[in-house]
Amino acid sequence: MLSIKNLKAKIENKEILNGINLEVKPGEVHAIMGPNGSGKSTLASVLTGKEGYEATAGEVLYNGQNLLELSAEDRAREGIFLAFQYPVEIPGVTTTNFMKTALNEIRKSKGQDPMTAGEFLKRLKDKAALVELDPELAKRYVNVGFSGGEKKRNEIFQMAMLEPKLGILDETDSGLDIDALKIVANGVNKLRNKDNAFIVITHYQRLLDYIVPDFVHVLYKGKIVKSGTKELALQLEDEGYDWIKEEVVS
């Protein structure tokens, strides 16, 4: 599904990614861990097409096409979804209207007719239940006045609404208490199937107790320096990142 080869990227002339290699197949969950400043969020931004992030070398193939050539909206229409680390507040736009517009723009790009009001409302209700989000929140302006936990849940709700092929969760666990974390993880688990894949970016192992990854990668100084299975995450939890840093140096 996703094939990243020797990807290098910079922001404002500062090299952040130094040759990333990663293969993600349908049905897989990959966790990307690493200390602060290792490039985790930059990878998410480069994959989703945020302006200002410039890939300087390497390639990213997504279902066979060159992902880096696509606009942010085209990537979303092709099924890539980013759950933001810092969800943005949009005063004046309700979540309902936001999701209706997004779904219909995605459908339009595929030559499909807009959803009927009935279909849309049913989906909204079902998916809100999936992440235990009060459907009343969808009538409010996007993320405005939401608590940190509500914002993160709203991200997973949006992911459920849009049913992406590749979901990228950027530190979705940060700022969540344990109950909210379980709800969010539970929502993601319900969305998992053999045709989609997830990249879970996190600083802590805690989330991975609930969203169990197939692979764990450690990102350090813009490179994946170690890959393994979920046991690697446990080891990081116990021992911290220092031993990884020492390994890289030696």
Partner: peptide, 20 residues
């Protein structure tokens, strides 16, 4: 960017925000 990341085209996104 938040709107575009959900599949909404850039000019539509601008229009939506100005309208709101």
């Amino acid at each position: 960017f938040y709107l575009r990341a959900r599949g909404i085209g850039e000019s539509e996104a601008r229009k939506m925000l100005l309208s709101a």
